[in-house]
Simulated assay, not measured.
Amino acid sequence: MKLNIRTKSENYVVYIKRDLLNDLSNYIKEYKKEKILIITDENVANIYINEIKKTLKDFKIDFHIISPGEKSKSLNTSKDIYDKLLYGKYNRRSLIISLGGGVIGDLAGFVASTYMRGIDFIQIPTTLLSQVDSSVGGKVGINYNNIKNIIGSFYQPKKVLIDPETLKTLDLKNLKSGLSEVIKYGIIRDYDFFKMLKMEIDIIKSLNIDKMENIIKKSLEIKEEIVYLDTYENDIRKILNFGHTIGHGIESLNDFQRFTHGEAIALGMISEAYISRELGYISSDYYCEIKYLLNKIISDVKFTREEKQEIIKNLENDKKNTNKDIVFILPINRGEVRIFYKGIDRSLIIKSLGADR
């Protein structure tokens, strides 16, 4: 299965194929004479490193293995990779491959975009969240001062290689984390897709690979359409951040240790849908539909007063903000959202964080 990704800077292909990793050499054969650095984390390396070494035995590969988790998406980790590239004499003809989830893809892409002003970069996402979202569209970056993705750039991969079989290594927590981004696509763009997810969420959570392939493809088709219209997130691409305004604030709690990205985004979508209902943009029935499905990902959470204040503080550093106004993407109809650049009262945001919303 192939999907063409169009952007204003570069076009490329996403390949979706079972057992693709066993045939990886055919997808990167143009780099056979060049140095290849594969960036991954300890968890992924434990599963795939021997398989990759065997598959790419005729290539000049090396690995840079980092600790898993958001804390590794940092300047210090980037520096370690730059040192490896520099002392290993990697050049503009070399290739970086990210093998892992969203943290690895964002970090590896950021390094690729900045080393020697840009070298080739291929994404091999191994989690559902990275397969349906972060591996496509060119957003790369790192965290700084506990602010999510505050340093980064737009840098498109040369191709994206998705093997749905890698999803079998995920626990339910990480599978559900990826499903939150899938649900997001239905809310922002395709209510029929949302309805299908609501009807079949329990089957999907049981990891039916046929269904997962179609879900990955549909999610990326929606994202491709939006990225093509607005590659550099000047306008409509911001709608892909539905749930992320509050979600990133939640994710930053406890130094990124308490919630997965997808769990935080699911909670953010519930809160932002609540704000929309309170402002009269969507009905209570539709809000309950959204909340019902997202509660299949994570149950409601009761935040303390101090945690709510910390979340608000984190929101004020959001990249979408204009002046002192927090920018929100809110549902206005089934399968439709709108960007709100101002006018959301802080007290309503705090109220939206209540477990009884």
Results as ranks from 00 to 15, higher is better:
V136R: 07
R277E: 10
I183Q: 13
L240T: 12
I226D: 06
K54T: 11
Y115P: 08
F59Q: 08
E233R: 01
I97Q: 02
T114E: 03
V227W: 00
L170R: 12
Y341L: 04
K296F: 09
D235Y: 12
Y155T: 08
L21I: 07
K148V: 05
N317W: 13
I39K: 01
K296C: 14
I216R: 00
I142F: 00
N91Q: 09
L293R: 04
I339A: 03
Y82R: 11
R237I: 00
I36Y: 01
V103K: 05
I201M: 11
G105M: 05
Q257W: 09
N174H: 10
G100K: 01
K176R: 14
K184Q: 09
I52A: 03
E213I: 13
T260W: 00
I329K: 01
L85T: 03
T77E: 13
I187F: 06
Y281D: 04
T40S: 14
L86E: 09
I36G: 00
L175K: 03
S67G: 12
S130Y: 03
K158H: 09
I270C: 04
D210H: 09
I28V: 10
G343T: 08
R92N: 09
L75W: 10
S9T: 14
R277K: 15
R6V: 13
I47T: 12
F63W: 04
I312Q: 06
S180K: 03
F340V: 00
E165V: 03
K217Y: 14
V136E: 10
N145P: 00
P164L: 03
I246E: 01
E10R: 12
G69Y: 10
Y12T: 15
K342R: 15
L240I: 09
G88F: 02
L24C: 05
N22F: 14
K158R: 15
P125M: 05
P157D: 15
L330H: 11
G88V: 12
Y115M: 01
C288M: 02
E221P: 10
S284T: 11
R93Y: 15
E200W: 05
Q309I: 04
I188W: 05
H248N: 13
K319T: 03
D210C: 06
E200F: 12
I270L: 08
L315S: 07
T40E: 10
M1D: 15
S94K: 10
K302C: 11
A264V: 08
E221R: 07
Y87P: 05
K173R: 11
D106N: 12
S98C: 13
I282N: 07
K205H: 06
E307D: 13
K84V: 15
L107A: 14
G243H: 02
I183H: 11
L229D: 14
I215L: 13
N295Q: 14
G243Q: 01
I298W: 08
S352G: 12
L85R: 02
F194H: 04
K198R: 13
I282T: 02
G109L: 07
D285S: 13
I47A: 07
I222R: 04
G243S: 07
Y48S: 08
K158F: 10
N149D: 05
Y286P: 06
N143F: 03
L21F: 04
K302R: 11
D23S: 14
L3G: 05
Y274V: 11
